[in-house]
Design a protein around this nucleic acid. Structure first.
Lengths: 149, 149
DNA sequence: CTACTATCTCTAGTAGCTATAGCTTCAAGA
DNA sequence: TCTTGAAGCTATAGCTACTAGAGATAGTAG
């Protein structure tokens, strides 16, 4: 039997923050946008969390660290709430994300190339002769990539 | 002699947009944040641009495509306005940016690794057994990288 | 009971734009 | 000259994913 009226595993937002490494305002923000369910409240109106909140927040944080967007995380959370369904969709989201990461890497590699050419071309004289400034000023040089990195 | 009262090379925001590939609201936005100087106005209050605006906007666009931030671009524009000064600072900005790009590539590569492991571990059953969901739910698995990509 | 810390709500700010509403101006054709 | 349609104007709000601050209240240790 557990102590009546008191949840064995319940804690404040501060402890949730410490355990997940997620800042307090961010936790409240996740609640606000509906990623985290609203927790119970103490008599004095303070949030009271349980283990389910902890694991859900952990899921969210890990997903964010892997670069999934809020929208993707919403889908993934939805799917993880329905363990009976086939996981093809989960995999599709992850695969799409992986593809996107690969595209970003490609873009950054080509960016890196252009930046290196630019930096190496500069001989360290006056700004007036600087190849970096020259290259940047060159509109026609614009077969470089889209602004998304 | 040029025609008095009429600039030989002056054009509207629409043409500036077409020539630089920069959208009209973006041009106005650059003006608002002080990256582009305020142009003259026609009798009917429409913006009138000249070649200097064109080259400055080209500079900005190219820099953005290379991933420089507004703050960096501001510095670069400042420097390019003073061609007598040594270009060490220009080079330093570019080099710092290149370093940052390299760091981003590293982070993305390691992200890619984790995503690939995750995707490959999934055998395509039910969500309940899905390794992708499992991996995401695992907080302790959190030696992965910072949320910045 | 008094400090002190933790938490509360609400608002506004960040970067780098993009979109919308409702208006005015300009250029070309009839 | 009139009309029509495209292009331009301002102002405001929205996007992502948070972060920071003000000012008030709650909880806790001594």
């Amino acid at each position: 039997m557990t102590v009546p009226g008191k949840n064995l595993e319940s804690f404040t937002i501060g402890r949730l923050s410490r355990e997940t490494g997620c800042k307090i305002p961010t936790i409240r923000y996740y609640e606000q946008i509906g990623l985290l369910p609203e927790p119970g409240r103490s008599a004095g109106n303070q949030r009271v969390y349980g283990p389910k909140h902890l694991s859900r927040l952990a899921f969210i944080r890990h997903s964010r660290k892997l670069g999934f967007s809020q929208a993707e995380i919403r889908q993934l959370l939805n799917l993880s709430d329905h363990p009976e369904q086939p996981c093809a969709e989960v995999n599709a989201i992850a695969q799409r994300h992986l593809d996107e990461v690969n595209r970003r890497i490609e873009r950054l590699e080509s960016l890196k190339g252009e930046l290196e050419r630019m930096v190496h071309a500069c001989q360290g004289g006056k700004v007036g002769d600087c190849r970096v400034i020259d290259t940047l000023a060159d509109l026609a040089h614009g077969q470089c990539l889209s602004p998304r990195h």
